[in-house]
Design a protein around this nucleic acid. Structure first.
Lengths: 222, 222
DNA sequence: TACCGCGATATTACATGCAGATCCGAATAC
DNA sequence: GTATTCGGATCTGCATGTAATATCGCGGTA
Protein backbone atom coordinates (compact mmCIF):
# COMPACT_ATOMS: atom_id res chain seq x y z
CA UNK A 1 0.00 0.00 0.00
CA UNK A 2 2.94 2.31 -0.48
CA UNK A 3 2.00 5.84 -1.43
CA UNK A 4 -1.58 5.31 -0.44
CA UNK A 5 -2.00 4.36 3.19
CA UNK A 6 0.85 6.63 4.12
CA UNK A 7 -1.42 9.65 4.08
CA UNK A 8 -4.82 8.16 4.87
CA UNK A 9 -4.70 5.31 7.31
CA UNK A 10 -7.86 6.37 9.09
CA UNK A 11 -10.49 4.91 6.79
CA UNK A 12 -10.02 1.25 6.21
CA UNK A 13 -11.24 1.69 2.69
CA UNK A 14 -8.61 1.37 0.04
CA UNK A 15 -10.83 2.83 -2.66
CA UNK A 16 -11.19 6.08 -0.73
CA UNK A 17 -7.46 6.36 -0.29
CA UNK A 18 -6.86 5.67 -3.96
CA UNK A 19 -9.45 8.26 -4.95
CA UNK A 20 -7.79 10.84 -2.74
CA UNK A 21 -4.37 9.96 -4.09
CA UNK A 22 -5.57 10.27 -7.67
CA UNK A 23 -7.09 13.67 -6.94
CA UNK A 24 -3.76 14.71 -5.50
CA UNK A 25 -1.93 13.44 -8.56
CA UNK A 26 -4.28 15.38 -10.78
CA UNK A 27 -3.92 18.63 -8.87
CA UNK A 28 -0.15 18.41 -8.62
CA UNK A 29 0.06 17.83 -12.34
CA UNK A 30 1.51 14.37 -11.93
CA UNK A 31 -1.50 13.32 -13.97
CA UNK A 32 -1.97 16.16 -16.45
CA UNK A 33 -5.18 16.83 -18.33
CA UNK A 34 -5.74 14.20 -20.97
CA UNK A 35 -3.64 11.58 -19.22
CA UNK A 36 -5.09 8.11 -19.44
CA UNK A 37 -6.31 6.57 -16.21
CA UNK A 38 -5.41 2.99 -16.94
CA UNK A 39 -6.74 0.82 -14.18
CA UNK A 40 -4.10 -1.92 -14.38
CA UNK A 41 -1.25 0.58 -14.63
CA UNK A 42 -2.46 2.64 -11.68
CA UNK A 43 -3.08 -0.51 -9.66
CA UNK A 44 0.50 -1.60 -10.15
CA UNK A 45 1.86 1.87 -9.45
CA UNK A 46 -0.12 2.24 -6.22
CA UNK A 47 0.44 -1.40 -5.29
CA UNK A 48 -3.20 -2.28 -4.82
CA UNK A 49 -5.48 -4.54 -6.78
CA UNK A 50 -7.59 -3.31 -9.66
CA UNK A 51 -10.92 -3.29 -7.85
CA UNK A 52 -10.44 -0.23 -5.64
CA UNK A 53 -8.70 1.59 -8.48
CA UNK A 54 -11.62 0.92 -10.73
CA UNK A 55 -14.03 2.22 -8.10
CA UNK A 56 -11.93 5.33 -7.62
CA UNK A 57 -11.72 6.09 -11.33
CA UNK A 58 -15.48 5.70 -11.71
CA UNK A 59 -15.93 8.16 -8.88
CA UNK A 60 -13.61 10.66 -10.51
CA UNK A 61 -15.64 10.37 -13.70
CA UNK A 62 -18.83 11.10 -11.79
CA UNK A 63 -17.14 14.07 -10.14
CA UNK A 64 -16.21 15.31 -13.61
CA UNK A 65 -12.53 15.25 -12.78
CA UNK A 66 -12.16 12.60 -15.45
CA UNK A 67 -14.00 11.88 -18.66
CA UNK A 68 -14.89 8.62 -20.30
CA UNK A 69 -13.40 8.54 -23.76
CA UNK A 70 -15.39 6.38 -26.17
CA UNK A 71 -13.32 3.21 -25.94
CA UNK A 72 -10.06 4.44 -24.48
CA UNK A 73 -11.17 4.32 -20.89
CA UNK A 74 -11.04 7.38 -18.67
CA UNK A 75 -8.75 10.37 -19.03
CA UNK A 76 -8.12 13.33 -16.78
CA UNK A 77 -10.66 16.00 -17.68
CA UNK A 78 -9.64 19.11 -19.52
CA UNK A 79 -11.75 22.06 -18.37
CA UNK A 80 -11.79 24.45 -21.28
CA UNK A 81 -12.60 28.13 -21.35
CA UNK A 82 -16.22 27.62 -22.40
CA UNK A 83 -16.88 25.10 -19.68
CA UNK A 84 -15.18 27.31 -17.12
CA UNK A 85 -17.42 30.19 -18.15
CA UNK A 86 -20.47 28.00 -17.66
CA UNK A 87 -19.23 26.96 -14.24
CA UNK A 88 -18.76 30.58 -13.30
CA UNK A 89 -22.28 31.47 -14.33
CA UNK A 90 -23.51 28.86 -11.89
CA UNK A 91 -20.99 29.88 -9.29
CA UNK A 92 -22.21 33.44 -9.45
CA UNK A 93 -25.73 32.65 -8.34
CA UNK A 94 -24.61 30.05 -5.81
CA UNK A 95 -22.07 32.32 -4.12
CA UNK A 96 -24.73 34.99 -4.03
CA UNK A 97 -27.14 32.61 -2.38
CA UNK A 98 -24.50 31.46 0.10
CA UNK A 99 -23.70 35.05 1.07
CA UNK A 100 -27.33 35.90 1.57
CA UNK A 101 -27.99 32.84 3.71
CA UNK A 102 -24.79 33.40 5.65
CA UNK A 103 -25.98 36.83 6.69
CA UNK A 104 -29.30 35.43 7.80
CA UNK A 105 -27.73 32.58 9.75
CA UNK A 106 -24.42 33.61 11.20
CA UNK A 107 -23.12 36.09 13.70
CA UNK A 108 -19.95 37.77 14.86
CA UNK A 109 -17.98 34.57 14.88
CA UNK A 110 -18.21 34.43 11.10
CA UNK A 111 -17.28 38.07 10.76
CA UNK A 112 -14.15 37.57 12.82
CA UNK A 113 -13.12 34.51 10.82
CA UNK A 114 -13.70 36.33 7.56
CA UNK A 115 -11.70 39.29 8.82
CA UNK A 116 -8.86 36.90 9.63
CA UNK A 117 -8.91 35.43 6.15
CA UNK A 118 -8.97 38.90 4.67
CA UNK A 119 -5.99 39.98 6.77
CA UNK A 120 -4.03 36.93 5.71
CA UNK A 121 -4.96 37.62 2.14
CA UNK A 122 -3.71 41.18 2.40
CA UNK A 123 -0.48 40.09 4.04
CA UNK A 124 0.09 37.48 1.36
CA UNK A 125 -0.46 40.08 -1.33
CA UNK A 126 2.07 42.42 0.26
CA UNK A 127 4.71 39.72 0.33
CA UNK A 128 3.66 38.50 -3.12
CA UNK A 129 3.10 35.01 -1.72
CA UNK A 130 0.89 33.50 -4.39
CA UNK A 131 0.22 30.23 -2.61
CA UNK A 132 -0.78 31.91 0.66
CA UNK A 133 -2.87 34.40 -1.25
CA UNK A 134 -4.78 31.66 -3.02
CA UNK A 135 -5.24 29.79 0.24
CA UNK A 136 -6.65 32.84 2.03
CA UNK A 137 -8.89 33.58 -0.94
CA UNK A 138 -10.33 30.07 -0.96
CA UNK A 139 -10.68 30.14 2.81
CA UNK A 140 -12.74 33.31 2.63
CA UNK A 141 -15.19 31.70 0.23
CA UNK A 142 -15.25 28.45 2.17
CA UNK A 143 -16.09 30.23 5.40
CA UNK A 144 -19.06 31.90 3.80
CA UNK A 145 -20.53 28.82 2.23
CA UNK A 146 -20.02 26.71 5.32
CA UNK A 147 -21.85 29.34 7.32
CA UNK A 148 -24.85 29.37 5.03
CA UNK A 149 -26.56 26.41 6.66
CA UNK A 150 -27.53 24.79 3.39
CA UNK A 151 -25.76 21.50 2.78
CA UNK A 152 -26.65 21.51 -0.90
CA UNK A 153 -25.02 24.86 -1.43
CA UNK A 154 -21.91 23.69 0.37
CA UNK A 155 -21.68 20.55 -1.70
CA UNK A 156 -22.22 22.30 -5.01
CA UNK A 157 -19.75 25.05 -4.27
CA UNK A 158 -17.17 22.54 -3.10
CA UNK A 159 -17.66 20.88 -6.44
CA UNK A 160 -17.30 24.17 -8.25
CA UNK A 161 -14.12 25.00 -6.43
CA UNK A 162 -12.62 21.62 -7.21
CA UNK A 163 -13.29 22.00 -10.90
CA UNK A 164 -12.06 25.57 -10.94
CA UNK A 165 -8.82 24.34 -9.40
CA UNK A 166 -8.59 21.77 -12.15
CA UNK A 167 -9.21 24.43 -14.77
CA UNK A 168 -6.46 26.56 -13.28
CA UNK A 169 -4.07 23.71 -13.90
CA UNK A 170 -5.21 22.88 -17.37
CA UNK A 171 -5.54 26.37 -18.75
CA UNK A 172 -3.30 29.23 -17.79
CA UNK A 173 -5.58 31.71 -16.14
CA UNK A 174 -5.16 33.81 -13.05
CA UNK A 175 -8.01 35.18 -11.04
CA UNK A 176 -6.77 38.73 -10.60
CA UNK A 177 -6.05 38.73 -6.87
CA UNK A 178 -5.95 42.48 -6.48
CA UNK A 179 -9.52 43.04 -7.59
CA UNK A 180 -10.52 40.03 -5.52
CA UNK A 181 -9.28 41.65 -2.34
CA UNK A 182 -11.43 44.74 -2.86
CA UNK A 183 -14.39 42.55 -3.71
CA UNK A 184 -13.92 40.52 -0.56
CA UNK A 185 -13.83 43.68 1.50
CA UNK A 186 -17.16 44.74 0.03
CA UNK A 187 -18.68 41.34 0.80
CA UNK A 188 -17.43 41.42 4.37
CA UNK A 189 -18.75 44.93 4.85
CA UNK A 190 -22.20 43.86 3.74
CA UNK A 191 -22.15 40.79 5.98
CA UNK A 192 -20.93 42.86 8.91
CA UNK A 193 -23.80 45.27 8.34
CA UNK A 194 -26.23 42.36 8.30
CA UNK A 195 -27.44 43.38 4.87
CA UNK A 196 -28.32 40.15 3.12
CA UNK A 197 -29.26 41.72 -0.18
CA UNK A 198 -26.06 43.74 -0.33
CA UNK A 199 -24.03 40.66 0.53
CA UNK A 200 -25.68 38.68 -2.24
CA UNK A 201 -25.07 41.46 -4.72
CA UNK A 202 -21.45 41.90 -3.67
CA UNK A 203 -20.76 38.17 -3.91
CA UNK A 204 -22.39 37.95 -7.32
CA UNK A 205 -20.51 41.00 -8.55
CA UNK A 206 -17.27 39.44 -7.36
CA UNK A 207 -17.77 36.25 -9.33
CA UNK A 208 -19.10 38.20 -12.29
CA UNK A 209 -15.89 40.19 -12.42
CA UNK A 210 -13.82 37.05 -12.21
CA UNK A 211 -15.77 35.54 -15.05
CA UNK A 212 -15.32 38.62 -17.19
CA UNK A 213 -11.61 38.56 -16.43
CA UNK A 214 -11.34 34.92 -17.39
CA UNK A 215 -13.16 35.55 -20.64
CA UNK A 216 -10.80 38.37 -21.51
CA UNK A 217 -7.81 36.17 -20.77
CA UNK A 218 -9.28 33.37 -22.84
CA UNK A 219 -9.81 35.67 -25.79
CA UNK A 220 -6.34 37.18 -25.41
CA UNK A 221 -4.77 33.75 -25.18
CA UNK A 222 -6.71 32.42 -28.16
CA UNK B 1 -30.48 -10.59 -17.95
CA UNK B 2 -34.23 -10.72 -17.57
CA UNK B 3 -35.77 -7.46 -16.51
CA UNK B 4 -32.65 -5.55 -17.40
CA UNK B 5 -31.67 -5.92 -21.02
CA UNK B 6 -35.28 -5.95 -22.01
CA UNK B 7 -35.48 -2.19 -21.83
CA UNK B 8 -31.93 -1.13 -22.56
CA UNK B 9 -30.25 -3.37 -25.04
CA UNK B 10 -28.52 -0.48 -26.80
CA UNK B 11 -25.59 0.05 -24.47
CA UNK B 12 -23.54 -3.04 -24.04
CA UNK B 13 -22.93 -2.10 -20.46
CA UNK B 14 -24.78 -4.14 -17.88
CA UNK B 15 -23.97 -1.69 -15.09
CA UNK B 16 -25.78 1.11 -16.92
CA UNK B 17 -28.85 -1.03 -17.40
CA UNK B 18 -28.83 -2.09 -13.76
CA UNK B 19 -28.48 1.53 -12.66
CA UNK B 20 -31.43 2.52 -14.81
CA UNK B 21 -33.47 -0.38 -13.55
CA UNK B 22 -32.72 0.50 -9.94
CA UNK B 23 -33.73 4.10 -10.54
CA UNK B 24 -36.97 2.83 -12.00
CA UNK B 25 -37.54 0.57 -9.02
CA UNK B 26 -36.95 3.48 -6.70
CA UNK B 27 -39.32 5.81 -8.49
CA UNK B 28 -42.06 3.25 -8.81
CA UNK B 29 -41.83 2.53 -5.12
CA UNK B 30 -40.75 -1.05 -5.66
CA UNK B 31 -37.75 0.00 -3.60
CA UNK B 32 -39.17 2.38 -1.02
CA UNK B 33 -37.11 4.87 0.93
CA UNK B 34 -34.97 3.11 3.49
CA UNK B 35 -34.93 -0.19 1.61
CA UNK B 36 -31.60 -1.91 1.73
CA UNK B 37 -29.72 -2.20 -1.53
CA UNK B 38 -28.12 -5.56 -0.93
CA UNK B 39 -25.72 -6.27 -3.73
CA UNK B 40 -26.00 -10.07 -3.63
CA UNK B 41 -29.78 -9.97 -3.36
CA UNK B 42 -30.19 -7.51 -6.24
CA UNK B 43 -27.71 -9.46 -8.33
CA UNK B 44 -29.74 -12.61 -7.94
CA UNK B 45 -33.01 -10.81 -8.54
CA UNK B 46 -31.77 -9.13 -11.72
CA UNK B 47 -29.88 -12.24 -12.79
CA UNK B 48 -26.53 -10.59 -13.22
CA UNK B 49 -23.32 -10.90 -11.30
CA UNK B 50 -22.47 -8.73 -8.34
CA UNK B 51 -19.95 -6.51 -10.11
CA UNK B 52 -22.31 -4.40 -12.22
CA UNK B 53 -24.77 -4.22 -9.35
CA UNK B 54 -22.07 -2.93 -7.09
CA UNK B 55 -21.07 -0.29 -9.65
CA UNK B 56 -24.68 0.77 -10.05
CA UNK B 57 -25.29 1.08 -6.33
CA UNK B 58 -22.16 3.18 -5.91
CA UNK B 59 -23.40 5.47 -8.65
CA UNK B 60 -26.77 5.84 -6.96
CA UNK B 61 -24.99 6.79 -3.77
CA UNK B 62 -23.02 9.45 -5.61
CA UNK B 63 -26.23 10.72 -7.17
CA UNK B 64 -27.70 10.95 -3.68
CA UNK B 65 -30.51 8.58 -4.56
CA UNK B 66 -29.06 6.20 -1.99
CA UNK B 67 -27.16 6.69 1.21
CA UNK B 68 -24.36 4.70 2.72
CA UNK B 69 -25.37 3.50 6.15
CA UNK B 70 -22.38 2.98 8.45
CA UNK B 71 -21.98 -0.76 8.07
CA UNK B 72 -25.34 -1.77 6.65
CA UNK B 73 -24.45 -1.01 3.08
CA UNK B 74 -26.57 1.34 1.01
CA UNK B 75 -30.22 2.17 1.46
CA UNK B 76 -32.63 4.13 -0.69
CA UNK B 77 -32.36 7.77 0.34
CA UNK B 78 -35.10 9.43 2.29
CA UNK B 79 -35.35 13.09 1.28
CA UNK B 80 -36.80 14.82 4.29
CA UNK B 81 -38.50 18.18 4.53
CA UNK B 82 -35.38 20.03 5.62
CA UNK B 83 -33.31 18.63 2.79
CA UNK B 84 -36.06 19.35 0.31
CA UNK B 85 -36.16 22.95 1.49
CA UNK B 86 -32.41 23.22 0.96
CA UNK B 87 -32.77 21.79 -2.52
CA UNK B 88 -35.46 24.31 -3.31
CA UNK B 89 -33.28 27.19 -2.19
CA UNK B 90 -30.72 26.08 -4.71
CA UNK B 91 -33.34 25.37 -7.31
CA UNK B 92 -34.68 28.88 -6.98
CA UNK B 93 -31.48 30.57 -8.07
CA UNK B 94 -30.72 27.95 -10.73
CA UNK B 95 -34.14 28.16 -12.35
CA UNK B 96 -33.82 31.91 -12.29
CA UNK B 97 -30.46 31.68 -14.00
CA UNK B 98 -31.81 29.24 -16.56
CA UNK B 99 -34.73 31.51 -17.40
CA UNK B 100 -32.48 34.53 -17.81
CA UNK B 101 -30.06 32.67 -20.06
CA UNK B 102 -32.90 31.15 -22.03
CA UNK B 103 -34.20 34.59 -22.91
CA UNK B 104 -30.77 35.67 -24.03
CA UNK B 105 -30.17 32.57 -26.11
CA UNK B 106 -33.39 31.32 -27.57
CA UNK B 107 -36.01 32.51 -29.98
CA UNK B 108 -39.53 31.81 -31.13
CA UNK B 109 -38.98 28.11 -31.30
CA UNK B 110 -38.68 27.98 -27.54
CA UNK B 111 -41.73 30.18 -27.06
CA UNK B 112 -43.83 27.87 -29.20
CA UNK B 113 -42.62 24.78 -27.35
CA UNK B 114 -43.33 26.39 -23.99
CA UNK B 115 -46.76 27.44 -25.17
CA UNK B 116 -47.42 23.83 -26.12
CA UNK B 117 -46.39 22.58 -22.71
CA UNK B 118 -48.55 25.21 -21.08
CA UNK B 119 -51.56 24.23 -23.19
CA UNK B 120 -51.08 20.59 -22.28
CA UNK B 121 -50.75 21.56 -18.67
CA UNK B 122 -54.02 23.50 -18.80
CA UNK B 123 -55.81 20.66 -20.54
CA UNK B 124 -54.54 18.17 -17.99
CA UNK B 125 -55.74 20.40 -15.19
CA UNK B 126 -59.19 20.65 -16.71
CA UNK B 127 -59.49 16.89 -16.93
CA UNK B 128 -57.85 16.48 -13.52
CA UNK B 129 -55.23 14.21 -15.05
CA UNK B 130 -52.53 14.35 -12.42
CA UNK B 131 -49.94 12.36 -14.32
CA UNK B 132 -50.30 14.41 -17.50
CA UNK B 133 -50.26 17.58 -15.45
CA UNK B 134 -47.01 16.63 -13.77
CA UNK B 135 -45.51 15.64 -17.09
CA UNK B 136 -46.40 18.95 -18.73
CA UNK B 137 -45.12 20.83 -15.70
CA UNK B 138 -41.78 19.07 -15.80
CA UNK B 139 -41.59 19.51 -19.56
CA UNK B 140 -42.04 23.25 -19.21
CA UNK B 141 -39.09 23.47 -16.86
CA UNK B 142 -36.98 21.11 -18.92
CA UNK B 143 -37.53 23.15 -22.06
CA UNK B 144 -36.30 26.26 -20.35
CA UNK B 145 -33.19 24.77 -18.88
CA UNK B 146 -32.27 22.96 -22.06
CA UNK B 147 -32.58 26.24 -23.94
CA UNK B 148 -30.27 28.07 -21.58
CA UNK B 149 -27.08 26.97 -23.31
CA UNK B 150 -25.25 26.19 -20.09
CA UNK B 151 -24.51 22.51 -19.65
CA UNK B 152 -23.77 22.92 -15.96
CA UNK B 153 -27.16 24.43 -15.31
CA UNK B 154 -28.83 21.62 -17.22
CA UNK B 155 -26.97 18.96 -15.29
CA UNK B 156 -27.61 20.51 -11.89
CA UNK B 157 -31.29 21.07 -12.56
CA UNK B 158 -31.68 17.55 -13.88
CA UNK B 159 -30.20 16.44 -10.60
CA UNK B 160 -32.54 18.66 -8.65
CA UNK B 161 -35.55 17.36 -10.50
CA UNK B 162 -34.55 13.76 -9.87
CA UNK B 163 -34.22 14.32 -6.17
CA UNK B 164 -37.45 16.27 -6.01
CA UNK B 165 -39.17 13.34 -7.64
CA UNK B 166 -37.69 11.09 -5.00
CA UNK B 167 -38.87 13.43 -2.27
CA UNK B 168 -42.37 13.38 -3.72
CA UNK B 169 -42.35 9.61 -3.27
CA UNK B 170 -40.92 9.57 0.19
CA UNK B 171 -42.90 12.38 1.72
CA UNK B 172 -46.44 13.17 0.80
CA UNK B 173 -46.31 16.62 -0.69
CA UNK B 174 -47.99 18.09 -3.69
CA UNK B 175 -46.67 21.03 -5.58
CA UNK B 176 -49.88 22.98 -5.87
CA UNK B 177 -50.51 22.68 -9.60
CA UNK B 178 -53.00 25.51 -9.84
CA UNK B 179 -50.62 28.17 -8.64
CA UNK B 180 -47.94 26.62 -10.83
CA UNK B 181 -49.97 27.21 -13.93
CA UNK B 182 -50.29 30.93 -13.26
CA UNK B 183 -46.60 31.12 -12.45
CA UNK B 184 -45.71 29.39 -15.69
CA UNK B 185 -47.83 31.85 -17.63
CA UNK B 186 -45.93 34.72 -16.06
CA UNK B 187 -42.60 33.12 -16.95
CA UNK B 188 -43.66 32.55 -20.53
CA UNK B 189 -44.90 36.12 -20.84
CA UNK B 190 -41.53 37.44 -19.73
CA UNK B 191 -39.66 35.16 -22.09
CA UNK B 192 -41.96 36.10 -24.94
CA UNK B 193 -41.28 39.75 -24.22
CA UNK B 194 -37.55 39.08 -24.27
CA UNK B 195 -37.24 40.49 -20.77
CA UNK B 196 -34.45 38.48 -19.17
CA UNK B 197 -34.70 40.14 -15.78
CA UNK B 198 -38.44 39.65 -15.59
CA UNK B 199 -38.05 36.02 -16.62
CA UNK B 200 -35.48 35.43 -13.91
CA UNK B 201 -37.69 37.07 -11.33
CA UNK B 202 -40.76 35.14 -12.42
CA UNK B 203 -38.91 31.83 -12.35
CA UNK B 204 -37.46 32.54 -8.93
CA UNK B 205 -40.84 33.63 -7.59
CA UNK B 206 -42.34 30.41 -8.90
CA UNK B 207 -39.89 28.21 -7.06
CA UNK B 208 -40.06 30.42 -4.00
CA UNK B 209 -43.81 29.91 -3.84
CA UNK B 210 -43.40 26.17 -4.21
CA UNK B 211 -40.88 26.14 -1.40
CA UNK B 212 -43.17 28.13 0.84
CA UNK B 213 -46.00 25.76 0.04
CA UNK B 214 -43.87 22.73 0.84
CA UNK B 215 -42.83 24.24 4.13
CA UNK B 216 -46.43 24.85 5.08
CA UNK B 217 -47.32 21.28 4.20
CA UNK B 218 -44.37 19.98 6.18
CA UNK B 219 -45.39 21.96 9.23
CA UNK B 220 -49.00 20.91 8.85
CA UNK B 221 -47.99 17.28 8.44
CA UNK B 222 -45.67 17.37 11.44
C1' DT C 1 -40.46 -11.32 32.09
C1' DA C 2 -36.39 -8.58 30.74
C1' DC C 3 -31.59 -8.72 29.53
C1' DC C 4 -27.36 -10.40 27.61
C1' DG C 5 -23.92 -13.21 25.40
C1' DC C 6 -23.14 -16.21 21.40
C1' DG C 7 -23.30 -18.64 17.17
C1' DA C 8 -25.15 -18.80 12.41
C1' DT C 9 -25.87 -16.03 8.54
C1' DA C 10 -25.13 -12.65 5.35
C1' DT C 11 -22.70 -8.70 3.49
C1' DT C 12 -18.97 -5.65 2.28
C1' DA C 13 -14.75 -4.71 0.18
C1' DC C 14 -10.87 -6.41 -2.06
C1' DA C 15 -8.39 -9.86 -5.17
C1' DT C 16 -8.24 -12.18 -9.27
C1' DG C 17 -9.73 -14.77 -13.56
C1' DC C 18 -11.29 -14.19 -18.19
C1' DA C 19 -13.54 -13.12 -22.79
C1' DG C 20 -14.24 -9.68 -26.15
C1' DA C 21 -12.77 -5.47 -28.16
C1' DT C 22 -9.60 -2.00 -29.51
C1' DC C 23 -5.42 0.24 -30.80
C1' DC C 24 -0.73 0.41 -32.37
C1' DG C 25 2.91 -0.93 -35.15
C1' DA C 26 4.95 -3.60 -38.65
C1' DA C 27 5.07 -6.09 -42.69
C1' DT C 28 3.31 -6.58 -47.28
C1' DA C 29 1.10 -5.57 -51.70
C1' DC C 30 0.68 -2.32 -55.30
C1' DG D 1 6.09 5.86 -51.44
C1' DT D 2 1.44 4.79 -49.94
C1' DA D 3 -2.38 2.13 -48.47
C1' DT D 4 -3.92 -2.05 -46.31
C1' DT D 5 -4.12 -5.76 -43.43
C1' DC D 6 -2.55 -8.74 -39.81
C1' DG D 7 -0.69 -9.72 -35.06
C1' DG D 8 0.47 -8.59 -30.43
C1' DA D 9 -0.37 -6.32 -26.44
C1' DT D 10 -3.39 -4.00 -23.52
C1' DC D 11 -7.58 -2.56 -21.59
C1' DT D 12 -12.38 -2.65 -20.18
C1' DG D 13 -16.13 -4.85 -18.12
C1' DC D 14 -18.21 -8.86 -16.01
C1' DA D 15 -17.85 -13.08 -13.02
C1' DT D 16 -16.41 -15.16 -9.03
C1' DG D 17 -13.45 -16.31 -4.87
C1' DT D 18 -12.40 -14.96 -0.10
C1' DA D 19 -11.36 -12.91 4.51
C1' DA D 20 -12.97 -9.82 7.88
C1' DT D 21 -16.88 -8.26 10.08
C1' DA D 22 -21.45 -6.75 11.29
C1' DT D 23 -26.29 -8.16 12.09
C1' DC D 24 -29.83 -10.85 13.98
C1' DG D 25 -32.20 -14.50 16.26
C1' DC D 26 -32.13 -17.51 20.15
C1' DG D 27 -31.48 -19.63 24.29
C1' DG D 28 -29.71 -19.09 28.99
C1' DT D 29 -29.78 -16.40 33.25
C1' DA D 30 -31.21 -13.28 36.81
Amino acid sequence: MAGVNETTAARTRVADAVCERLREMIFTGELPAGARLSVPALAEQLEVSRSPVRDAVLRLVQERLAREEPRRGAVVAHVGAAELAAIYEVREVLEGLAARLAVENAGRRLVRALQGALDDHEAAMRTADLAASTEADMRFHRLIREACGNAEVVRLLDDVQTRVRLAMRTTTVTSGPRQALDDHRAILTAIEAGDATAAEQAARAHIFRLRTLLQQQAEAGA
